[in-house]
Design a protein around this nucleic acid. Sequence first.
DNA 1: CTGAAAGCGCTTACAG
DNA 2: CTGAAAGCGCTTACAG
Lengths: 340, 340
Amino acid sequence: MKKERKATIKDVAKAASVSPSTVSRVISGSTRISKETTERVKSHMVSLGYHPNAIARSLASNTAYTLGVIMPNRPGEVLLNPFFPQALSGILKGATREGYDILLRSQSEKENEVNVVRALINSSKVDGILLMTREIGDETIKYLKEIDFPYSVIGSPAYEEDDINYVDNDNERASYELTKYMVDKGYKKIALIAGDDNLTVTKKRISGYLKALKESHILEDKGDIFKGEFNEETGYKYGKVLIESNKSYDAVITLDDVIAYGAANAFSDSGHKIPKDIAIAGFNNSLLSRQSRVPITSVDVHADKLGEEAVNMLIRIVKTGKNQSRKIVKYTIFKRESTE
Amino acid sequence: MKKERKATIKDVAKAASVSPSTVSRVISGSTRISKETTERVKSHMVSLGYHPNAIARSLASNTAYTLGVIMPNRPGEVLLNPFFPQALSGILKGATREGYDILLRSQSEKENEVNVVRALINSSKVDGILLMTREIGDETIKYLKEIDFPYSVIGSPAYEEDDINYVDNDNERASYELTKYMVDKGYKKIALIAGDDNLTVTKKRISGYLKALKESHILEDKGDIFKGEFNEETGYKYGKVLIESNKSYDAVITLDDVIAYGAANAFSDSGHKIPKDIAIAGFNNSLLSRQSRVPITSVDVHADKLGEEAVNMLIRIVKTGKNQSRKIVKYTIFKRESTE
DNA sequence: CTGAAAGCGCTTACAG
DNA sequence: CTGAAAGCGCTTACAG
């Protein structure tokens, strides 16, 4: 770096012939400073190229203007799915608007998440923690509530909606509506292929699916629900199972487009046409669903909006110290050829 | 937060009957402390639940142990492409290993990037800046070099490889090799569809393509190169153009899988079979290329590795103050049906 | 409306 | 091997 020392608040104070306190008040936009003084100080800030030292401010004021995001440790989900980058994009947008930075920290393999979060909080680098999709009974949320540190969660944290600050879609209703739509289209035997069923979102979507079937007086059969992982293999594997089963499935809902994709491949490989022989729908409205051989009906959860709302909620909590009630973001079902 | 004040270095010092200086030295792993003292201090740190305050350390030592990443302002590229999340994942992995955090800041629409970077640096929140793919003659790099602040770049910063710290693939060679491969497969008239041609990577890939054609004694024709944007529409549009042209194209290289996808759709819509009527290849080895109706040959640039190496380079620069020479990460061409 | 002073929790020469 | 002291660049009661 250039040798020249960065201008500090003292330099500005000296140049403007006021005290550092006054400069500080000008920076923070305190109203109790005369217009003339404010102008004079500001002009000296500009001519000295002064920028406040955020670290010093943090130490003195005990506020970092930074929010921590823990990068989820599910590489597949993070990389195959538009959800993560979209949510991050929304987070960043919301944070920037409010003058906050985002600090990303990853969960190292050996360290459990609670420890990562604890260390981050104790370092004073962040004013709040934003968490991505949680497992049921999540330890990190428990810890955060215990020490009463500001946080918010993208995605429902637990099936029981106890008092947790979260932003989510109504996943039960989304799944319900999607299932209803397929029933209305005339499909009679609708299977479901899930990803990780430790996730609340999985439980909710399964629940919505079952509810729709029940309401439609379709015999629900737990054997129609297949659980695997959030990847193509799971889709392919159970896609094959559906075809080879004697239950005459004519439709399948998958809880992620990647799974849908795998299933669709299984169907084509076996010479089954979509949607004539079997219909298919997914979640997340990824490029995959839009660009599939046969475009796949998919539920867009608006991940960017989820991220933006979660960060808005978090900032409100940081500023007011009051926890928030949940916030629901709308979803959109994109109906495509795969369910025609 | 709980009312109980966080333990500070003074509390530990008192409990261990030493001075704060000594505690500080134990924290930083200074060797000049006796084994017994070290042990005693450490045990008190644990029992008091002490964690160093990173902000205070930053202020005193003028090191933030944080690296800044500016989120690129090209939503399409960021969201449709696995490149960004993959690179970020690598960045985080490398940073975590070295004990650094990542601070994400986005480029707001009105603010130009240099100002965002300047403000970030002056805030003292970061020790270095990591930049994603740059345009030619990039202003931000110019600024960073001018003030001699640690930085590194993912992707070549300029066509002329002047002294800039960057990590990249050999994009010229990758494109050369891909083109050669297609020539060897027997394709005679190979078009190229590019994205944003302000990017260095675009120039390099075009150059490699032309070199391969020249070496293969294939008449190169600037009219075979189509420039558009990094999206499907560009692919579709020029895909149509290729078909309707009288130049009998039998192959096309696109500089991104999304573009390849668009082109592939244009071909199918016009009843042209891949690769029988026209072959196609892309870059980035995204899910799209793997999962296309006809799997598409694609160059994997190993974005995670690029991110990891860029952060390694940056940390080295931060620590030594010495700029680095460039680092080349290997690429891999995945040959698939689309060029058979 | 403005200033002097203490303090935020560390680090780091300097001294022994 | 260890400690006392100054300092990093701000903020913020307190006083006027």
